[in-house]
Design a protein around this nucleic acid. Sequence first.
DNA 1: TTATAAAAGGATATCAATGTCCTTTTATAA
DNA 2: TTATAAAAGGACATTGATATCCTTTTATAA
Lengths: 146, 146
Amino acid sequence: MLSKSTEYAIRALVFVQLRNWEQKRPGVGEIAKEIEAPEAYTAKILQTLTKNKLLDSIKGRGGGFFFNDNQSNLTLYDVIHVVEGDACFHKCGFGLKQCNNDNPCPLHENYKVVRDGFFDIVKTETVKSLSEKILHGDAVLNRLKL
Amino acid sequence: MLSKSTEYAIRALVFVQLRNWEQKRPGVGEIAKEIEAPEAYTAKILQTLTKNKLLDSIKGRGGGFFFNDNQSNLTLYDVIHVVEGDACFHKCGFGLKQCNNDNPCPLHENYKVVRDGFFDIVKTETVKSLSEKILHGDAVLNRLKL
DNA sequence: TTATAAAAGGATATCAATGTCCTTTTATAA
DNA sequence: TTATAAAAGGACATTGATATCCTTTTATAA
């Protein structure tokens, strides 16, 4: 399971993408409200994202968050990596420090399939691909369609 | 990812099973050492397991932990359910409160596959099945074979 | 040029998971 | 019957994730 912070981050980025497509740069307040996350906490997460160059921002009046040209096609993995680290893609499901094909825990073979399946998803899906699903009405960002 | 507590619980139960097959009832000290977990914390987890009838114990001199006849074929799901709850099998991967086939988040279809795959594993694998792999030398409980 | 609106940043608070310590209860061996 | 060994239980400590608040910096509109 992803951490709450990571969930907020991904939802925030998707919302920024949708607003950017409407030629808008949303601010913290608008983003937090839309993704149903606490405002100050959302601000912190957006800070992490901009510091790590996953997102761009402009300060001051009329400012807000947006993607620049280097930041299209951000994968979910990129976001997870920056927000909570990628331990979940390496860790043994049984909790062993030393667990690999040569020295497998009793869950190793089965767990690997699931873990790698998830890795594949987050390496394939991008902020843009998720946003498109919402734009096309095939998915929702919160309880209602946008 | 399972919580640390759940990992300790599963490893502890597997070790108890292995020792039971040798006609022994391990105590907290022996269990904690074998699974490389803090002793007092392991004691708490074993308490949870016995209170929830997943494991039996005998107090006093010569006492220890063991499975009784009602407790064979415990699935990993049973353990997870008792130790950390089963939120991870229901929760939306994107963090939405309302997410289902009619009202899907943009990760819904893909995430469902992974989540259900994991559910299938923990409903199929049992403390006994894991223990057998170790007994047969096909897997390890810690860094070395038992 | 100044007032204002917005992100950035620092300090602190809260909460749940993890971990420790000490006392109580209970069974058995001596 | 008593000393001892073991689990059970209660209280507390630590840590990391989550969350809040206030100040500083910066860009723009008036």
